[in-house]
Structure formats: structure tokens, C-alpha cells
Write a protein that binds this DNA or RNA. Structure first.
Length: 794
DNA sequence: CAGTGAGCGAGCTTCCGCTTGACTT
């Protein structure tokens, strides 16, 4: 039976033509365009690479790379080889960029294709016409472009596999360094330094609210003084000057303005907008986009091109005309400006503009909508605005004038569907419609305020804004932005988190009814949400690399080597010569650092311990950041203590570090067992009889009393009693408990859901054991599925 | 989901850029 079912595909005549592309989704689409004589298959990206666990470059022999087929590609290559043997012509249709050319070459090599057996073709858009045209213009593999890719690959391997082991020896095991990731970390470290070193300067901003009378109605009008006052005294003096003054409109100026839409999405701009508008992390965006791509809803999601195909523009035009009218159409070609862009694909856009909704879940739908709107808007008319500026004179001075401004949309254009967000969280919304006014009109003052405002440092990076910066510097590619961001977090060079701001006071002066009042107000400054912060290890690795390998850490290093790769691609330079010129001085530096440099711990001397007179250092050790009292050569061994989560080597003070040695401490006895107070990973705790009890936030672990500690323990016991539904004498480890989300079963350290149809109060031990064994086998199979790749790391 | 709370003897770790699937009788 089974054999019969398989037969049709076995006896199907071997197609005359085999087309190979990189992505299986693309293969499926293209197969539909070509006739029966074409079979379309995919290579799933690169089919050969340098070995995983060795340098794989023959340095002595002209940097000859030792390519191999990775295990997960063996079957792909075997299948393709079989199909290629039976085909008259193999069409290598990988992307038209450096990597794509290299993939074609590796395919030709590993499928043993002779020059008369294959043809190389390229196309930039997945349409029937584009592909038929490509087939009419075949060429051979561009060997120089392949050499350029090889140079890129070998350089990255040499840098990564020589610098990383150096870090293992000099800093900490299992660290990594590379042309891309190390510079990404540098960006974050330096931004953090700028933020930390930033001194906020305050100045006073004056604004006024006037009354505008029109047809018996009174409308408030907000106006601002363009200049700021440096001191409170100056601001106050100005307000005093305005007491009893008359305010008159001196000038009304209106001028037209326009806004143009942004270009369609690339990988990086999609990541930025999805982060700002939908709160997606960079990797979430890519996973969701991948699903939309695989189901044929959008074009390829890893691209650096702003370009739309002719047919896409025609679809957009039709859609805009249908929904908004011909006035809203303005077709535009966008050029790509970003450094090192290779433009092998189109911009990210809906496959069919007439499909307004797609995606199987909320995330997919939202992302699709974003892509659809952005694409449509990119082909729409400019928005036409009218901006009005009103200049308001003050009778008591000629020097200063208030300015009120308004903006009216005359024609919405693309704003009907889309406007781009910005990273500036406090961006003031544009002023709207102004009430009718005329020159020389007198404006009664309602209230005038002078508010103290502080200057702000450059913002810390989000994942998405880091990607934008990397793209600007030409570092990394659309396919690597998300993986790089997760690598630097996995290595704990960088942590993404939210931090509370600090309360600060500011002054507010108010002039109202000819009286000036002064108030102190509070605001929270410097709070951060989901931003990237460097860790101690990130800082230490960064300064180590900056000290010894400034060339690679230079923001222009990639751009510099890319220029050389371009020369290789154009046949003006030999690839191995480019590598040779880079490698030997670099390698020399690695050897020298290995020999001459001490172990690098980012050690900082904080001062002397008043009790012992020994040196106190902050540094990183085997388990992270720590404080060390004393030097190893002294007769008394050094003492160690870990830093708290929020402390860093760079900022901790001597006093703070000595505090760390005061814990854990004994705090008396209870039930004949010792009470120990300490601070763990999750904050201050009391340890008693092998159990841990969290200390309430308001209690200071250094001063908490025995009585208070006992109280905390009793309270915890009481709440535990309350949440216990069932216990079993024969299995003390198994309990039925009441949690935040309803009843559950706790067995040792694991928890299990109770099926809805069972009553938790009457569960028998047998039923519970069954739930546990069902639960564990399910969890196990899920785990092996998900972590097959991450397992190797352990 | 629900609780959590280490300690510095071995061997391994690592790059960037393409791309997603997962043994059979």
C-alpha cells in the first residue's frame, strides 16, 4: 500500500531544469511561475562553511579555507546532487550579492557542476516576468565576488577565533569577541559613560496663556518665549517686568508646509517601528515576519532595500485610488542610502496590496497592518499643512516677544494611513487650530509660568535604536541584527532592563493676577524602560579590547575592510593579500598581548579597609563582580564579597563595598535554631532552620531585630497555612496549594496544573501521582524539542 | 505563574552571514 503511494513521485520524469534558490518559500512561489520542465528547490542558505570547532584556515598556505558541509546540510546537498545529476541545466538563482554569489559557487563545487552544466541567473523581485527575463540572460559565476565573500568570511573567522581565546585566558572563560559584536558592545559602553558623566544644566522656560475673544467666546492661547533664562533670578526679573504689562499681536505669519511619507520598510526600519509602535523586541519582529513570509503574505523580511517592484507600485496605486481617490496617489522611487547596502531583494511589503488583513495571531495581524500601511503611504501624496506663527509684543520691553504657533492640515495625503513614530518620548504634540485673530489685537494674560527644565543626555540604546546605529555604521547585515543583539545579551556584556529614575525638584514661578508666586515641585528623571545597559563584564572586555585592539574596535573598521572587499570584487586586489596585510600585524598583537599582558579584571582600588588597613578592590572574578579586601601575597588570605545586582565596579564606593562584608550576620535564635540575615539574588532574607524568608522592603538587613525576624517567619507560616489545601502523610513532598491563579499541585520543587474537572479538595494521592507523571513526560518532550540548539551550549 | 537564596581543582568555550527543519522498517 505504502509503496504504491510513493510510486507516482518515483516514476515522475526527471525535470529538464533544476532551479536552486536560497529560501524554500521563494522556491514554492517560483515553481508556480515556471512550467513543468522546471523543478525549483532551495539550498536553505549556505551549504558549506568553515569547520565549527577549529579555525579552518590554512594560514601558512595563502589562508586557504577548509570548507565542509555542516551536518544539518548533508541531506540538502545529497538531494540537490541527485536532482542535478538528472537535470540538463542547473540554474543557480541565489541572491545577487556577495553572499548569494558565494552560495552559488559552493553549490557548483559541492554538486560537482561543470561550467556547461549550470547557468547563473539573478532577479530582484519575485514576479513571473522578472524570472522569465532572468532566464533569458544567464551568466557564469563571478569568481571575484566569491573571493570577496571568502575574504569577509576568513577575516571574521580569524578575528573571532584569535580574540575569543585571548579573552578566555586574560579575562574569563567562554567570552567572545568579533568584528560586529564587539563594536556593538562598545556603542553601549560609551553611551553609558556619556549618560553617567552627564551634568544636567537647568534653565527656565517661560510660557503664557492668553485669552482670545471671538464672538463672545473666550479661547485660551498658549505662547512661548523663544529664549530661556539661565537662573531663577533672571526668570523672576522677567516675570516682574510683565506685571501689569499689555500684550499685543504684532505679527501674524502663515506659510504652507508639507510632509512626505517615509520609504517602505527595510529590516532595520521595520524593527524600529515595531519596537516603537508595537513594543516588539527585535527578535520577536523577525519571528512574526518570518511567519508572514512563509505563508506568502509579505515579501522577504531580511533586506536593506527601499525599492518596490513595478507591479507592487501598480497595486498600491490601484488600492489608493479605490480607497481614497486619485488625488492621494503619488508614486515614488526611493533610493537606499545606508552604508554597504547590497539590495538583493525588494523592500518589505505585502505580497498583495488588496489584502488588508493577514496573520493568524494578534502579533502577526498587527505587524502585517504596519507593513501594509507603511507600503501604501509610501506611494501617497504629501500632506499639505499651513503653519501660523503669531508674534506677541510686551508693552514693558522691546527685547522679548512671545510666539504662539498653530498648524492646520489642509490636505491629509499619506497621513490618512500612516505616520512614523520617533524615539523622543517627550515630544510635544504639534499645536492645532488657532482661534481667529488679527494684528494689533490686545491679548489679556491669564497666567504666565517660568518652569525650571533640565537638559537631558543622549538616550540609552534600545535594541532597535542600536540596530539603526549599526546600520548607519555599516556594521552587520539584515540577517544578523537580531542574532547579534541576542549574542551580546547571552554573553552578558549587555543587559536589557528597566530602571527607576531619581526624584528631583524643580522650581515653578507663576504670574497670575499681577502676583508672582514660587513653588518647589518634584519630577522623576532618568527612568528607563527596556534599554540596553552594559554590565561589568561588558565594560571590562570593552576596555581590554580598546587598549589592545583599537583598530578592530574602530567604528570605521568594517567600512575600511568593506572597501577592500569591494576592490577584490572588482578584480583589482587579490583576496589573500588583503587578508595577509591585515592578519600578520593583528596576530603579532595577539601574541604580544598573550605574553605581556596580565590577567585583566578591570580592578579598581577603592581605598583602605579602616579595620585592617588592607587594600580594597572592586573587580570581576570567576563568578562576576566582587569586592576583594587584601592582596593575595599577604599572609592573611583576601576576603571576598559579591556586588549586589544594582552595583557596578565603576560606581561603587568604599563605604558601600565595606557594607557588603557585614552580611550574612546572626540575629539571635528562634526555636533553638540560629537566625541568619543575608542578602541574596532576590534581596534581603532571613534564614532559619534551612528555610528562607524574604525581608520586607522597609526593613534594613543590617539593623533588623530578632523580634522582627520572628514576626516575619510567623507571618510566612500563617500565609503558608492559608494556602494549603491538602497534605499527605505518606508523601510529605506533595501538597495541594492555593496560588495566585487558583489551586495547583506542588511536588518537591515542581508545580503542576490541576485539570478543571477535578475537585482539588478531594484529590486522591493516586490522581495526583498520575497528574505528575503526565505533566513531566509532556514537559520533557516539549523541552527536547525547543532546546536542541541551546543544549550544545551547556 | 506559585519560589528563588552558589562560590573560584576539569574541559569547553569562540566569529559572521546565509537559511529553516527535525532518524523509519
Amino acid at each position: 500500500m505504502i509503496i504504491l503511494l510513493l510510486l507516482p513521485s518515483k516514476i515522475k520524469a526527471m525535470a529538464k531544469n533544476l532551479v536552486i534558490v536560497e529560501s524554500p518559500a521563494k522556491a514554492k512561489t517560483i515553481e508556480g511561475f515556471l512550467g513543468k520542465e522546471f523543478t525549483v528547490k532551495s539550498s536553505f542558505g549556505h551549504v558549506r562553511d568553515l569547520p565549527k570547532n577549529a579555525i579552518g584556515v590554512n594560514i601558512e598556505k595563502g589562508f586557504d579555507p577548509e570548507y565542509e558541509i555542516p551536518v544539518d546540510k548533508k541531506s540538502v546537498v545529497a538531494d540537490l546532487r541527485k536532482l542535478a545529476k538528472g537535470a540538463e541545466t542547473v540554474w543557480l538563482a541565489t541572491d545577487e550579492d556577495r553572499e548569494g554569489e558565494a552560495i552559488s559557487w559552493h553549490l557548483a563545487e559541492s554538486l560537482q557542476l561543470t561550467p556547461d552544466h549550470y547557468k547563473r541567473i539573478v532577479f530582484h523581485e519575485i514576479t513571473k516576468n522578472a524570472i522569465l527575463n532572468a532566464i533569458k540572460q544567464p551568466r557564469k559565476i563571478d569568481q571575484n565576488l566569491v573571493f570577496a565573500q571568502q575574504a569577509r568570511r576568513v577575516l571574521d573567522r580569524l578575528v573571532g577565533f584569535e580574540l575569543s581565546p585571548l579573552l578566555w585566558k586574560k579575562v574569563k572563560p567562554a567570552l567572545s569577541a568579533g568584528r560586529v559584536q564587539s563594536v556593538a558592545v562598545r556603542l553601549i559602553v560609551e553611551r553609558e559613560k556619556e549618560v553617567q558623566g552627564f551634568k544636567a544644566i537647568s534653565s527656565y522656560r517661560v510660557s503664557a496663556i492668553f485669552s482670545v475673544e471671538h464672538d463672545g467666546d473666550i479661547t485660551p492661547l498658549k505662547a512661548e518665549l523663544p529664549q530661556r533664562f539661565k537662573t531663577k533670578e533672571a526668570a523672576k526679573a522677567f516675570l516682574e517686568l510683565c506685571v501689569g504689562a499689555k500684550f499685543t499681536i504684532e505679527d501674524i505669519e502663515t506659510k504652507p508646509a508639507k510632509k512626505s511619507p517615509s520609504p517602505p520598510f527595510t529590516t532595520s526600519t521595520l524593527q524600529q517601528e515595531a519596537s516603537r509602535k508595537l513594543g516588539f523586541s527585535v527578535s520577536r519582529t523577525m519571528v512574526v515576519a518570518q511567519k508572514l513570509y512563509e505563508s506568502g503574505k509579505i515579501t522577504y523580511m531580511r533586506t536593506d532595500s527601499h525599492n518596490l517592484s513595478g507591479s507592487a507600485m501598480a497595486m498600491a496605486k490601484e488600492e489608493i485610488e479605490k480607497n481614497y481617490g486619485a488625488d492621494y496617489v503619488k508614486l515614488r522611487k526611493y533610493t537606499t542610502k545606508s552604508k554597504g547596502a547590497q539590495e538583493a531583494h525588494e523592500a518589505i511589503r505585502p505580497t498583495y496590496m488588496s489584502v488588508h488583513q493577514a496573520g493568524t495571531d494578534a502579533a502577526g495581524q498587527k505587524l502585517y497592518e504596519l507593513i501594509w500601511k507603511r507600503t501604501l503611504a509610501s506611494q501617497m501624496s504629501d500632506a499639505l499643512l499651513e503653519k501660523t506663527n503669531i508674534s506677541i509684543g510686551i508693552s514693558t520691553t522691546k527685547k522679548e516677544k512671545f510666539i504662539a504657533s498653530g498648524e492646520v492640515v489642509k490636505f491629509e495625503g499619506f497621513l490618512k494611513v500612516y505616520f512614523e513614530s520617533t524615539d523622543d518620548e517627550e515630544e510635544e504634540s504639534a499645536a492645532g487650530l488657532l482661534p481667529p485673530m488679527k494684528k494689533d489685537q490686545l491679548l489679556p494674560l491669564q497666567e504666565m509660568t517660568a518652569t525650571e527644565r533640565y537638559s537631558k543626555p543622549l538616550p540609552r540604546y534600545t535594541e532597535a535604536s542600536l540596530v539603526r546605529k549599526m546600520e548607519e555604521l555599516g556594521i552587520g547585515r539584515p540577517s544578523t541584527y537580531a542574532p547579534t543583539i541576542s549574542t551580546i545579551q547571552k554573553r552578558t556584556y549587555v543587559i536589557k532592563e528597566s530602571r527607576d529614575g531619581m526624584k528631583r525638584t524643580y522650581s515653578l514661578l507663576t504670574l497670575s493676577n499681577d502676583k508672582i508666586t514660587e513653588k518647589e515641585k518634584h519630577e522623576v528623571a532618568g527612568a528607563e524602560k527596556n534599554k540596553l545597559f552594559p554590565t561589568d563584564i561588558g565594560q571590562v572586555v570593552n576596555s581590554f579590547l580598546m587598549e589592545h585592539f583599537s583598530e578592530i574596535m574602530d567604528y570605521n573598521f568594517t567600512a575600511k575592510v568593506e572597501r577592500e572587499f569591494d576592490e577584490v570584487a572588482e578584480g583589482q586586489k587579490q583576496w589573500s593579500l588583503v587578508i595577509k596585510n591585515f592578519y600578520w600585524p593583528f596576530h603579532e598583537k595577539v601574541e604580544q598581548t598573550l605574553k605581556e599582558s596580565e590577567k585583566y579584571s578591570g580592578q579598581r582600588l577603592l581605598g583602605k579597609d579602616p579595620a585592617s588597613g588592607r587594600n580594597v578592590y572592586a573587580k570581576i572574578g570567576r563568578f562576576g563582580s566582587m569586592i576583594q579586601i587584601g592582596d593575595p601575597e599577604e599572609t592573611d588570605k583576601p576576603r571576598f564579597a559579591s556586588l549586589r545586582k544594582e552595583q557596578t565596579i565603576d560606581t561603587i564606593t568604599l563605604d558601600e563595598s565595606l557594607e557588603l562584608f557585614k552580611l550574612p550576620r546572626k540575629a539571635g535564635e528562634f526555636e533553638n535554631k540560629e537566625l541568619v540575615i543575608g542578602v541574596g539574588r532576590f534581596g534581603p532574607y532571613i534564614r532559619h532552620d534551612g528555610k528562607f524568608y524574604s525581608l520586607p522592603k522597609e526593613e534594613d538587613p543590617l539593623t533588623v531585630t530578632t523580634e522582627k525576624s520572628i514576626e516575619v517567619i510567623e507571618e510566612k507560616r500563617e500565609s503558608d497555612r492559608k494556602k494549603t489545601i491538602q497534605t499527605f502523610d505518606e508523601e510529605p513532598d506533595i501538597r495541594v496549594l492555593k496560588g495566585k491563579w487558583g489551586p495547583y499541585i506542588a511536588s518537591g520543587k515542581k508545580n503542576y496544573k490541576i485539570p478543571k474537572d477535578l475537585n482539588p479538595e478531594q484529590l486522591t494521592l493516586e490522581e495526583i501521582k498520575k497528574i505528575i507523571s503526565d505533566g513531566t513526560s509532556e514537559a520533557k518532550s516539549r523541552k527536547t524539542k525547543k532546546t536542541s540548539s541551546s543544549k550544545k551550549r551547556k
